[in-house]
Design a protein around this nucleic acid. Structure first.
Length: 621
DNA sequence: GTCCCGACTTAGTATACGGCCA
DNA sequence: TGGCCGTATACTAAGTCGGGAC
């Protein structure tokens, strides 16, 4: 035919069958691989490859047995903004109800046991569970908790419990510690039973049917009540997060589907049939008064296509980025202050992969900033520093209160502009006082369809990976060596995007373990060398072989240690999952003979199924 | 232009799981 | 077989961004 058909692993034959003047791709398969790209007709197929059809494991509503060729209506392009034509699900799975403490587990006030009402007791257990967490030592946390707790007390309790310092939760705390120990110590059979129960819930509530396919839901459980744990210096830490009731929940599904039943004796807040959104249920949480949603798992077609689209936008940026850079450089000299600020901010976003930086409501969240919301106090200007000219020193808290610290040598014009922007301002004033994210994004949109600040992060992350892989991979290396190169390329991106993690608690110990292994291996290598020297003629080859194997093993361990050390405080996962076009990695795997499983685990392979189907070794971002 | 909100992506950490070794 | 350890998954907070009201 006119199009190309991509064959996936396990695919043994493709037929094009004409039926009623329309052609269908019929795919015969072997083994388990049920993901395909095949082009069902009526569809334009570009040589780069449309996403095409990903055939899926058949689910409810699908009559095909071994693979699923969707009914025609699904092939039709949906109207603008329409996300689905059919959506059926069971509604959320609610957090288990509170189980009262046994009578022998007591709360003490001022040294005396005090029996609490059920509601008061439940909230007390939230605090008790967190007793050995650093949170409970913070004054804001304690105050917020105590305030909210008192609100839920009976008036009698309110009269007695007036001082958190006089509250003794230790017995309750111990009860929960013991309980979790007991859970761990359960026999194999008991654990198995628990697992089966969880699987049953997953099976019942964890999937929905979307346009004829059974799709996995991302978060099908409502969030249990507890104490809010914000990140960083959060003014609301310790506040009570209420229990979500069916009466709080809005259900979204299709009109003609089986509408989920609320739990007995309850009703939904609302049932709506909105096919322009992708969520299945929503509720308003009480801490920030914002909406929370139940949505699909990243493995779903809906999410996959969106993800693919995101990378396609970033690839389009690649074509125009030179022009955009030239323009913002020219704008550094603009007569309009507004334009200059926009141009400098965009330069930061492009060069340093900063986030856009929306305004935040003061006092409602931790004080964090992004590019547009930078304040004067967040940068320091050094005309000269460590032998470099025009150095900008950044020091601020970004998303999740992760510190961004960086010293960057910038163009002279940028430096001068920054001096200008900071003139006559207080440290707490906005650096870019004539700019915000909506102005910036409106401008970006005018430069390229679909362009916004975050696209630069995606683009720069992906292009960096591609370049680093090219620079670092040595085709002579063994798989372990190639993987080290991959991790280093990945790490370059994580550093660019400032993806950090706290050093794992077990880091030192596991490093020691690894070092011990290395030492032991070294010893073995030395011994093998001795043996080889002493070996008789007919034994030399054998000894050589052994030595070689040991040396390779030692090599591998050393590589592991290097990798581990370099990764100590850097989180690779976030960029891998959200910023790096998976087709780059897949192409690299194919080109250098590295199994994809070495790069992506099962969940990640499911998420990136679209890319695994699509990318061949020549893929270029 | 500003403010607000809804929908969606991106983020780090806590915990569960499962394989390996003594 | 039980405990240890590294990895995978669960969890949910915290961003981005566009659209509508004013």
């Amino acid at each position: 035919g006119k199009g190309r058909v991509h064959l996936s692993l396990g695919c043994i034959a493709v037929f094009l069958v004409s039926k009623n003047g329309e052609t269908e791709a019929v795919v015969e398969i072997t083994g388990f691989y049920l993901h395909f790209v095949a082009m069902v007709t009526g569809h334009r197929v570009s040589s780069q490859g449309d996403l095409g059809r990903r055939f899926q494991t058949p689910g409810l509503g699908c009559s095909h047995r071994s693979l699923c060729i969707c009914p025609r209506w699904e092939e039709e392009k949906k109207e603008d903004g329409v996300k689905w034509t059919q959506l059926e699900h069971r509604g959320p799975y609610f957090a288990p109800l509170y189980e009262p403490l046994p009578d022998d587990v007591q709360f003490y006030y001022n040294g005396k046991p005090l029996k609490l009402s059920l509601a008061t007791e439940e909230i007390a257990t939230f605090y008790a569970k967190m007793l050995d967490h650093e949170y409970t030592t913070k004054e804001i946390f304690q105050n917020n908790f105590f305030n909210d707790w008192r609100k839920e007390m009976t008036s009698d309790e309110q009269k007695i419990i007036k001082d958190l310092d006089k509250c003794d939760f230790r017995e309750i705390h111990k009860y929960f510690v013991d309980k979790s120990e007991a859970r761990k110590a359960l026999s194999k059979e008991e654990k198995q039973k628990l697992k089966e129960e969880a699987d049953k819930i997953q099976e019942e509530y964890g999937y929905c049917i979307l346009d004829g396919h059974r799709e996995k839901i991302g978060n099908f459980k409502t969030e249990p009540p507890g104490l809010f744990r914000g990140r960083g210096d959060h003014p609301k830490m310790g506040m009570l997060k209420r229990r979500i009731m069916p009466e709080d929940v809005v259900i979204n599904c299709s009109k003609d589907s089986k509408i989920p039943e609320p739990p007995e004796g309850h009703k939904w807040k609302e049932v709506r049939f909105d096919n322009t959104v992708t969520w299945l249920a929503s509720w308003t949480e009480n801490i920030q008064n914002t909406l929370k949603y139940i949505m699909l798992n990243p493995s779903s077609k809906l999410k996959g296509e969106k993800d693919w689209q995101k990378y396609e936008v970033a690839r389009r940026l690649k074509d125009v980025v030179h022009k955009i850079r030239a323009q913002y450089q020219a704008d550094w000299k603009s007569k309009e202050m507004k334009k200059r600020q926009r141009a400098v901010a965009l330069y930061f976003i492009d060069k340093l992969a900063l986030r856009a930086g929306n305004e935040k409501e003061e006092g409602e969240t931790a004080d964090t900033v992004g590019c547009c919301s930078l304040r004067v106090e967040h940068i320091r200007l050094h005309p000269e520093l460590d032998g470099q000219e025009h150095v900008v020193e950044f020091d601020f808290l970004g998303k999740d209160s992760i510190r961004y610290y960086n010293k960057v040598s910038v163009e002279k014009m940028v430096f001068k502009n920054l001096q200008l922007f900071m003139k006559n301002k207080d440290p707490s004033d906005d650096l870019f006082d004539r700019l915000n994210t909506s102005i910036l994004n409106r401008h970006l949109q005018s430069l390229m369809d679909g362009l916004s600040a975050k696209v630069f992060r995606t683009y720069n992350a992906s292009i960096t990976l591609q370049e680093q892989l090219k620079a670092l991979t040595n085709s002579e290396d063994n798989v372990a060596g190639k993987l080290l190169s991959y991790n280093r390329a990945n790490r370059a991106v994580a550093i660019l995007c400032n993806h950090q993690r706290s050093t794992p608690k077990t880091f030192e110990k596991s490093m020691q373990n690894l070092q011990a292994k290395i030492d032991a291996k070294k010893q073995q290598v030395e011994e093998a060398q001795e043996e080889l020297k002493k070996a008789e003629d007919d034994n030399v080859e054998k000894k050589k072989k052994l030595l070689k194997r040991l040396e390779e093993q030692l090599d591998k361990l050393n590589v592991q240690a290097t990798d581990k050390e370099e990764n100590k405080q850097i989180a690779l996962g976030t960029s891998k999952l959200n910023y790096l076009d998976p087709r780059i990695s897949i192409a690299w795997c194919k080109k250098f003979g590295v199994p994809i499983e070495k790069i992506y685990n099962k969940t990640q392979r499911e998420k990136f199924a679209w890319a695994i189907d699509m990318a061949d070794e020549d893929f270029e971002f």
